[in-house]
Design a protein around this nucleic acid. Structure first.
Lengths: 205, 205
DNA sequence: AGTGAACTAGACTAATTGGTCAACTATTTT
DNA sequence: AAAATAGTTGACCAATTAGTCTAGTTCACT
C-alpha cells in the first residue's frame, strides 16, 4: 500500500490554527505548507485546493471536539449542570488559547464562517452543519431541565436559539475586543436567561 | 487649490461594499480601484495602503450611519419604541441588502472585525470604538424605559450588553446561514429579554 | 529481492499582487 | 497669464501567489 504519512493530519492541524489566529484569505498555501512542514507537492497530493483542505480540517476538528461536547452534555449529568460546565469550558478554552497565542480567538466556526460564507459555499454548508449540532446539545439540556421542573422553558428550541446566539455574540466580541473580560458574564447571564439560580441550587421557578 | 475630485469618496464606498459582500483579505487593491473607477496611482495618492482606506471608510460609514441611529433612538420617542424601531430597522436593512446583493450580509463591523482583529490593530481599535457607540444607544433607551417604569431593568448596562451580544450573534448567524429566517425572532425575543410586552402596551412589569 | 503504490521534493510557470514613478491635466490663486 | 496646487494616468517593477510536473524515495506486500 506504499508508504504512510501523517502529512495530511499535519496540514489539517496547521490550517485550523492559521485560520483561527489569522484569517482564511490571508493564509497562503505556502504558509500552510511551512507550518505543517510539508512540501507543496505533498499538499496538492492530498488536497485539490485550500478550500478542500479547510473542509477536511473542519471534519477533523469536529471529530475531536464532538466527544468533549458529548462528555459535557452527558445525560448522566444534571441538565443545568451540563450547561454550566459548557460555559466554564468555553471560558477556560478561551483563556488557554489566549495564553498560547497571545490574543483572544473567539469561536473558530464563526470566524471562518463569517469570512467565507459569501464566497465558499461548500465550506459555508459544512460550517452550518457543525453549528447546528451545537444548538442541539443546548436544546436537549434545556428540554431535560424543563422536564425535571428545574426551569420553566416550554419552548426549549427557542430558548436554545436565544442562548446560542448570545454565546456567539459574546465570543465574537471577545475576539474583536481581544479581551476575556466580556466573557465573564457568560455563566451568570446564561443562567438568568434560563430563569435559574446560578451556582448550584435548582429549584422550581 | 488645484483640481477637485470625488475619487476618495468613490474608493471608500467601493471598499465598504467589497469588504461586506466578500472579505477584507480577499479584496485586492486592483479590485477596489476597478469598482471605484479610479486608477492605482490615485489610490495611492489618497491612501497609504488598504488598511488606511479601510479606516477612512469606517469613519465615513459611521458618519452617515450615526444620524440614522440618532433618529431611531431620539429622546422624543418612547424608550421601548426606540428599541422596537431599531429592531425593525435592522431587519429591513438586511432584507434590502439581500435584495441588492443576493445574499445576507449581517453586521459589517462584525464581519470586518472578526477577520482583521488579530492582524490589523489600527482597524480593530476603530471597530471597537464604533461598536461601543452602538451599545450606548441601547443602554440609554433601557435606562429611560426603566426610569419610566415601563420595564424592570435596574442594571441598564448589563441588559444592553446582553441584548447587543444577542443581536450580533443573530446577525452573524444570518450571514453564515445566508438566511433572513433566523432574524424573525429578533423583535419579539428582544422584548422578552427586556421583560416587556411586544407590540405596544408598556405596563409596569 | 522485487514490484507497485503511496508519498515527497522542489524547481518551474504564469498570473496576480502591492506599490512606485514621472509625465500629464485640471483648477485655483496670485 | 503664470505659477502653484491637487489630482490623474498607466506603464512598470519586484515579490508573491496558486498550481503543475517530473524525478525521485519509502514502504507494504508478495
Amino acid at each position: 500500500m506504499g508508504r504512510v504519512s501523517d502529512a495530511k493530519e499535519r496540514l489539517m492541524a496547521a490550517v485550523s490554527e492559521l485560520f483561527w489566529t489569522g484569517s482564511y484569505d490571508s493564509t497562503t498555501v505556502d504558509q500552510i505548507c511551512q507550518r505543517a512542514g510539508v512540501q507543496k507537492g505533498s499538499f496538492y497530493h492530498f488536497f485539490a485546493c485550500k478550500a478542500t483542505l479547510a473542509e477536511a480540517a473542519l471534519n477533523e476538528e469536529w471529530a475531536t471536539y464532538r466527544p468533549r461536547l458529548d462528555a459535557i452534555f452527558s445525560a448522566s449529568v444534571a441538565p443545568l449542570e451540563r450547561i454550566r460546565q459548557h460555559c466554564e469550558f468555553s471560558l477556560k478554552e478561551q483563556a488557554d488559547l489566549r495564553e498560547r497565542h497571545g490574543c483572544v480567538l473567539g469561536c473558530p466556526l464563526c470566524t471562518l464562517g463569517t469570512e467565507v460564507s459569501t464566497q465558499e459555499k461548500g465550506l459555508q454548508k459544512k460550517i452550518q452543519e457543525i453549528m447546528a449540532h451545537g444548538v442541539q446539545y443546548l436544546e436537549t439540556a434545556i428540554r431535560d431541565a424543563h422536564a425535571a421542573g428545574e426551569i420553566h422553558a416550554p419552548d426549549a428550541k427557542a430558548k436554545a436559539k436565544l442562548i446560542h446566539a448570545y454565546h456567539l455574540g459574546l465570543l465574537t466580541q471577545a475576539r474583536i475586543q481581544d479581551s476575556l473580560a466580556i466573557l465573564e458574564d457568560l455563566p451568570k447571564t446564561t443562567f438568568e436567561l434560563l430563569g435559574a439560580d446560578f451556582p448550584r441550587r435548582h429549584k422550581k421557578k
